[in-house]
Computed example of a mutant assay.
Amino acid sequence: MTAHSPTVRSVQGDLEPTELGIVDAHDHLFFRSPLLAGQELDDVDLARQELAAFAAVGGGTVVQWTPYGLGRRAAELPALAEATGVRIVAATGLHQAAHYTPELLAARGTDLAELFVRELTEGIAGSGVRAGLIKVAGGFHALDAHARRTMRAAAEAHHATGAPIAVHHELGTGALDVLDLLCEEGEVPAHRILLGHLNRSPDFVTQREAARSGAYLAFDGPSRANHATDWRMPDAMAALADAGFAHRLLLGGDTTTAGARSVSGGPGMPYLLRRVRPRLEESLGKDVVEQILVGNPAEAFAVEWR
């Protein structure tokens, strides 16, 4: 690779974008939050089994959106990648305030951008693993003070490193407010922003406007909480593709609880390729789905790192 060519920052080092293969662009191997007490993703062996199951159906890369302070177990990730052959991208960033104790948020103070940059460039403490993206979160149809603070820090960290910014949207809402803050105030190029969960609010007008900005739209699922909108995802993605935005689409599984893993009886990561992919191929065609799973993430996560 040339000195300044775009690379994807995986837990095993920087990769050429063509090395990713089929990408689960939004998922979790480890996740621990007080909002999901008793449902933690924290078992290393089950994480290995889940990755192996994903690899068995053709999966090549998993992008873990678990940010700082939520049990991401970064030190375990290189060995899991080595054991399964699945490449892993880790995240820095901060989720909604409700996922943290007040003490942790107070302890972070105003050094969020510094923390994000350090984890992107030097590594996540105690792991030797460098993050490859910044994860932040909005609220339901709004951005509270915590969201604005973390997004401004993410914008600052992006300018220092080039890292992409991935955004959790509560029930799929608030995407245009996020773009206003990050693109206009934060001066982040839209193509460096990944808007998550947009399938959970099937507002085709908002989706087209978000895609028109140049941002990536990450569709994910399935989910018990969002089952009422899961079935609309093929139509939404087909509408965006027909409008000329196939190159802005990403697809992920977003496994957030232990029971959702395929090795624990849930749909898990393999479901993305075993069931979601064939369903989307009926609506979008095989070539477009290949672009969404391979070509688009290779561009979305590849950065000329600073």
Rank of each mutant, 00 (worst) to 15 (best):
G128T: 02
R130K: 14
R130D: 15
A131D: 09
A131K: 14
I134H: 09
K135Q: 13
V136N: 09
V136L: 06
V136R: 09
A137R: 08
G138K: 03
H141Y: 10
A142H: 14
L143S: 02
L143K: 02
L143H: 01
D144H: 09
D144Y: 15
A145E: 12
H146F: 06
H146P: 11
M151K: 02
R152W: 05
R152V: 02
R152H: 13
R152Q: 15
A153W: 05
A154K: 09
A155T: 03
E156V: 10
A157F: 04
H159V: 04
H159I: 14
A160F: 03
A160R: 15
T161P: 11
G162C: 05
A163G: 08
P164F: 04
P164I: 01
I165N: 13
A166N: 13
H168L: 07
H169E: 06
E170D: 06
E170G: 04
L171V: 01
G172F: 00
G172S: 07
T173C: 00
G174D: 02
A175V: 11
L176S: 10
D177E: 10
D177V: 01
V178Q: 09
L179H: 08
L179R: 01
L181T: 09
L182E: 04
E185A: 14
G186Q: 02
E187G: 03
P189D: 10
A190D: 06
L195D: 04
L195Y: 08
L195Q: 13
L195T: 07
H197L: 00
R200P: 01
D203H: 05
F204A: 14
F204H: 15
V205E: 15
V205W: 12
V205K: 08
V205S: 11
E209F: 00
E209S: 04
E209A: 14
A211D: 12
A211I: 03
A211E: 06
A211K: 04
R212V: 07
G214F: 03
G214T: 05
G214N: 02
L217N: 11
L217C: 08
A218M: 11
F219S: 07
F219R: 09
F219C: 10
A225K: 10
N226V: 00
N226K: 03
H227C: 06
H227Y: 07
T229Y: 05
D230N: 13
W231D: 03
W231I: 00
R232S: 05
P234H: 10
P234C: 07
D235G: 12
A236T: 01
A236M: 12
M237S: 10
A238H: 05
A239P: 03
L240N: 07
L240G: 07
L240I: 04
L240R: 02
L240S: 08
A241N: 06
A241P: 09
D242Q: 15
A243M: 08
G244T: 11
G244I: 13
G244R: 06
G244C: 15
F245W: 04
H247W: 08
H247C: 06
R248M: 13
L250I: 00
L250T: 01
L251A: 07
G252F: 03
G252D: 13
G253A: 14
D254C: 02
D254H: 00
T256R: 02
T257Y: 00
A258D: 15
A258N: 15
